[in-house]
C-alpha cells in the first residue's frame, strides 16, 4: 500500500476567500459504462482557490469523476458547471472549459515526438494563438518553476518519470488554467521520484491554484487539502477537512479504507 511521503510538517494555509465563487459544480451526476453504474448521484462543489483531494479504492469512480469535469468522459445525468459554463454536447462549451482546465495524467502523456519546450508551447501557440517567442518565454518560466529548465531541448523519452510528470504539470500551466485536475499523478512513479512531483504540487497549492487531486498520497492530502473526498462504488461517501477526515471518520467504509491504506 501507499506509503505516506513526508512533505514537511507545515500545513499549507487555505487560500479560499470567504466569499469565493464556486469554480466546479457537480449536481447529481450519474454515469454508466454500458450497464455498469459508475457514478451515482455525485454532487460536489469546488470553490475558487480551493484544494480538494479525492481518494477511494480502485474502481470507486474517482478518476471517472474528474475526467467528467473536462469532458474526457461524458456523463448521462445531472449537471456539471465549470467556471460558470455548463457542460453540454456543445463543442464550443467543451473547448472553452478545456482552455481553463489543466489536467495531469497518471501516465504523463507527454508528446514523445516533440521536445520538452515544444510540448509546453504547443497549446499556447495553437489554442491561445500566442506568438511563438512569447510562448517559449512562458514555457521556460514554468519549466524553471518545476525545476527542469535545462531539459527544454530534450525529448520526453530521455527524461525520468518524475521529470516527465513535472513537464506535464508545466505543460498544463502554460495554458494559464484557472483549475488544475490531477488524476493519480504519482501512481506510475518510482518511489524516489514521488516527492519531487508532490513538492511541485505543494508549491502550486501555495500559489492559490484551484486544484482537484485524485491520489493515494495521504500525506499530501493532510498537508494541502482544504477538503478530502472519499468515494466508494461510484458514490461520494464522506467529505470533510483533513483533520476530521483522518482523525474522526464517520462511515465504516472510510474507516476500513483508511486502515487498509495507512495501517501497517
Amino acid at each position: 500500500m501507499a506509503e505516506v511521503v513526508e512533505l514537511g510538517k507545515v500545513q499549507v494555509r487555505s487560500a479560499v476567500q470567504p466569499d469565493a465563487q464556486p469554480m466546479i459544480e457537480l449536481r447529481k451526476v450519474n454515469k454508466w459504462f454500458g450497464a455498469l453504474h459508475v457514478l451515482r448521484d455525485v454532487s460536489l462543489t469546488v470553490r475558487e482557490r480551493e484544494r480538494v483531494v479525492v481518494c477511494g479504492p480502485s474502481g470507486s469512480g474517482k478518476s471517472t469523476m474528474i475526467r467528467c469535469i473536462n469532458r474526457l468522459e461524458t456523463h448521462q445525468e445531472g449537471e456539471i458547471i465549470v467556471d460558470g459554463i455548463k457542460l453540454t454536447d456543445d463543442l464550443r462549451n467543451i473547448d472553452a472549459i478545456r482552455r481553463e482546465v489543466g489536467m495531469v495524467f497518471q501516465s504523463f502523456n507527454l508528446f514523445p515526438h516533440l521536445t520538452i519546450l515544444e510540448n509546453c508551447t504547443l497549446a499556447p501557440i495553437w489554442v491561445r494563438k500566442m506568438p511563438k517567442k512569447e510562448a517559449e518565454e512562458l514555457a521556460m518560466e514554468f519549466l524553471t518553476r518545476v525545476r527542469i529548465p535545462e531539459q527544454a531541448k530534450k525529448y520526453p523519452g530521455q527524461l525520468s518519470g518524475g521529470q516527465q510528470q513535472r513537464v506535464a504539470i508545466a505543460r498544463a500551466l502554460c495554458m494559464r488554467p484557472k483549475i488544475m485536475l490531477f488524476d493519480e499523478p504519482t501512481s506510475a512513479l518510482d518511489p524516489e521520484m514521488i516527492k519531487e512531483v508532490l513538492d511541485v504540487m505543494v508549491e502550486l497549492a501555495e500559489s492559490g491554484m484551484t486544484m482537484v487531486v485524485v491520489t493515494h498520497e495521504m500525506g499530501f492530502a493532510r498537508t494541502v487539502a482544504d477538503r478530502v473526498v472519499f468515494m466508494d462504488r461510484g458514490e461520494v461517501v464522506e467529505v470533510g477537512p483533513p483533520k476530521d477526515f483522518f482523525g474522526n471518520p464517520r462511515s465504516d467504509r472510510l474507516r476500513t479504507f483508511l486502515s487498509q491504506i495507512l495501517g501497517h
Binding site: N70, R71, L72, D95, R98, R99, V101, G102, M103, F105, S107, F108, N109, L110, F111, P112, H113, L122, A123, W126, V127, R171, A172, M175
Partner: peptide, 25 residues
C-alpha cells in the same frame, strides 16, 4: 489513448490534434 486525451485536455481542436499530435507519430 493517452495522447488523444492529453491533446483534448489542452483544448486542441480535432484537426490540430490529428495534425500535430496523432499523425506525426
Amino acid at each position: 489513448k493517452g495522447q488523444y486525451e492529453a491533446a483534448d485536455a489542452l483544448g486542441l481542436t480535432y484537426w490540430q490534434k490529428t495534425g500535430l499530435i496523432i499523425l506525426p507519430q
